[in-house]
Design a protein around this nucleic acid. Sequence first.
DNA 1: GAATCTATTTGACATTTGTCACAAAGCAAT
DNA 2: ATTGCTTTGTGACAAATGTCAAATAGATTC
Lengths: 203, 203
Amino acid sequence: MRRYAYWPAEANYKTMDKLELKGILKSHFSSLENESLNAFVKHSSYLKSTKGTKLISEGRRHHYFYLIIEGGVKSYYSRDSRDVCMWFAFENEAIGTMTTYEGLPSKETVELLEDSELIKFNIEKIKELTRTDLSISHLINDLIIEHTLCIEERLYQLQFTTSEERYKSIIQTTPEILQKVSLTDIASYLGVSRETLSRIRSK
Amino acid sequence: MRRYAYWPAEANYKTMDKLELKGILKSHFSSLENESLNAFVKHSSYLKSTKGTKLISEGRRHHYFYLIIEGGVKSYYSRDSRDVCMWFAFENEAIGTMTTYEGLPSKETVELLEDSELIKFNIEKIKELTRTDLSISHLINDLIIEHTLCIEERLYQLQFTTSEERYKSIIQTTPEILQKVSLTDIASYLGVSRETLSRIRSK
DNA sequence: GAATCTATTTGACATTTGTCACAAAGCAAT
DNA sequence: ATTGCTTTGTGACAAATGTCAAATAGATTC
């Protein structure tokens, strides 16, 4: 297991009290009124975990979605021992899978790309809040819409752009992916084999 | 223009009063309380339109989403005079584009596959309702989630299944597509050329 | 029915990409 | 440095698919 300088495994790293947590959530979910924020924080907790940890496993029901404070994750589908990455996410992004949110067995696996700090949110509890709290309902709605627009953009790119264009697009828009994700995973994300990506890169 | 038996162009077809409209919406949006339903109906209107009509045009802002009462639509992206279909929808399905809902220029075009009857909903007005009405907020949320799950399934299929498997899957799950959509459009939906689809079919 | 248009199919060929095998490079542990 | 492990790159070949051109089928109009 590789360790990263900014987070030595030996250190007994901070936990986070509800007050700190509230501060962080306030800055990310600025649409929430103070009262809604308090309710939200009740069902949130801080979490640190090591590279390779699966936040969500394919085929199983889970109860959380997450906000990445520090670190990164990949999401992928598996079939016949072949993995295809669907998305990557890093600092300040809220993540989860739609099937998990719907209470269904997840179709994707979500795994830490590196040792990470996260905040996790209990889906059932947050959903309960959305039944009575309009601002929380809207917040969730916004997160889902943002996610949907990303997926749609990905579909568009897969249909209309060559793998070379897609590779260039990654370099320009999210170069951090190249530093944090293996080329094997990037290839699957782009929809080509490892070898083809390698040939694209050697130009 | 082809005409369909069940809807002669010559007939002066019914319009629909608010009461009828409410009845239809009640059966589709059964989660809505009576009061919410009344508010919803205020911003709904009945519409009939002919094959080829574009409900939503790529690159433009629009103000409605729709429920299909009778008929069908296709959604497609265009680039370099090549069209790629993203989804098809028929009776009893609620449709629209995510970008339109967000007030952005639409990335897709949505076009009638045949003469159709629809109910259209004013997005801005309905959005206003979601600010104060929880059940409407949840209804919209559910529609978006359903849409998202469809898109994700499509992405999954594009990555993991062969075009032949995808064709068979259409036959089994939504055979009505084959009757109502041209093979050219189906080919683009499956992610292959017309000619390739033709060869798949000749087996 | 003949003419016209569009949609679909078929053939020949070129191109792209995947697959397999193996080489090279990078990294970690001894 | 040496060894072992994982990741990435390269070559040769096969398979799948796209492209172009032409033929056929189906539908529409006169």
